[in-house]
Design a protein around this nucleic acid. Structure first.
Lengths: 210, 210
DNA sequence: GTTACATGTGTGACGATGCACATAGGGAGC
DNA sequence: GCTCCCTATGTGCATCGTCACACATGTAAC
């Protein structure tokens, strides 16, 4: 997943400067991206300006350094929407920042597309669970150096595997719940007869689920 | 976390060639490191040979390409032990591959050190939970582009936050259980009067917990 | 026959990431 | 006065990660 898309998603909510983005990602936004160094943000923003995805104006402050406040452009908006509607590729590790970012930004821009993202994620996890049923951590014909205790490693590996299985199960439950909530929301919007061209219909949601 | 340490940890269990390492990491070892490209493994192994951490001999096979079987050296063993005994720095996201690798390799080499790793992780998570109690996803004074639905984003953000809190709680429970199991194991080893200089005592484990 | 796939090893290129260093003003504490 | 921390922006460099390309062989399917 491109860092660019996270920044676009955040700037779609509100114009911000680099330091604010850094602070937010470092606290509230940890689930979207972890350990983001400030140098990366400034560099990325610079590149995005070059590519026309964002623009900025300098905000002079009293008693504090000047800040560059970035605002998303039409080009940036289009790029964000294109990302939101592009195919979602799940990662091997579940509950990844990858999914979180893709899901939250997709959901706030297009709930029907968010349902497709959930379905893709669910299908991938179900296949993954099936594949992992028979596997173990053990290596055949081991020849360890003196210090290693393979028995302990095996026990801990199994315990981790157990925890992981349960965690994936709960994750999939959460996804199913979230999917239901989105479908219900779309059905409500449809029942209200909201003719707004921006809203999506329950029929679209059903298609997404088919 | 250095990829080097994962390879050292695996080669401490058994000599392996690059392709085997790749296959293992791609299946059983996903929780230690995800999406590892083969080019990275071969390059890393080459670098490790240069640095004297591993050595290899060519294993000629009939009907299959030759394989370079890598074996950990004394220098590599020392580097691995040094890593295992170095301070552990938790990552912002819990249940990370970072922790998994560090914990499993530390545990099989030195259970007392593994207890310290768990304690460090637990302390970090507890502080993290306290910090996150009051926070929300909301941005003050929002100014979103037309397409975004901030209300939906807020609802989903809260739901994700809830899931995350529960997941962290369960993670900490697991850590506590695992810690208890390790302490019990060390106490048993002590009671057996095992005088081996490689083993650690329950007293050491208690010191680790203090 | 030829195509595809698995085993096995690499290199070259390029972008992403992380860490150190640089700058600059303001406020708090010693 | 001095040091430390917070705000705010960046550059330079080395490593890491990813993708494409390359080569060699056996086997199974079409």
């Amino acid at each position: 997943m491109k860092f660019e898309n996270v920044l676009l998603g955040l700037l779609a909510m509100k114009p911000l400067h680099g330091y604010e983005l850094m602070k937010w990602l470092d606290t509230e936004g940890q689930f979207l991206r972890s350990n983001t160094h400030h140098s990366q943000i400034y560099r990325e923003l610079g590149r995005m300006v070059t590519n026309g995805l964002v623009e900025f104006h300098v905000d002079a402050r009293e008693g504090r350094p000047d800040a560059k406040v970035y605002r998303i452009t039409e080009i940036g908006r289009d790029a964000l929407l294109e990302w939101v509607h592009s195919p979602y590729q799940p990662t091997s590790r579940f509950q990844d920042a990858d999914f979180n970012a893709r899901f939250i930004f997709t959901a706030q821009l297009d709930p029907a597309a968010a349902i497709v993202v959930i379905d893709t994620e669910l299908e991938y996890r179900r296949a993954q669970v099936l594949r992992s049923r028979t596997r173990s951590l053990t290596m055949s014909d081991p020849d360890p150096i003196a210090e290693v205790d393979l028995g302990r490693a095996e026990r801990i590996g199994l315990a981790m595997h157990e925890f992981g299985k349960e965690a994936v199960d709960r994750w999939m439950d959460w996804l199913v719940e979230m999917r239901a909530a989105l479908v219900a929301e779309l059905a409500d919007a449809d029942a209200d007869g909201d003719g707004s061209e921006a809203s999506v219909t329950a029929r679209q949601a059903e298609e997404a689920g088919a």
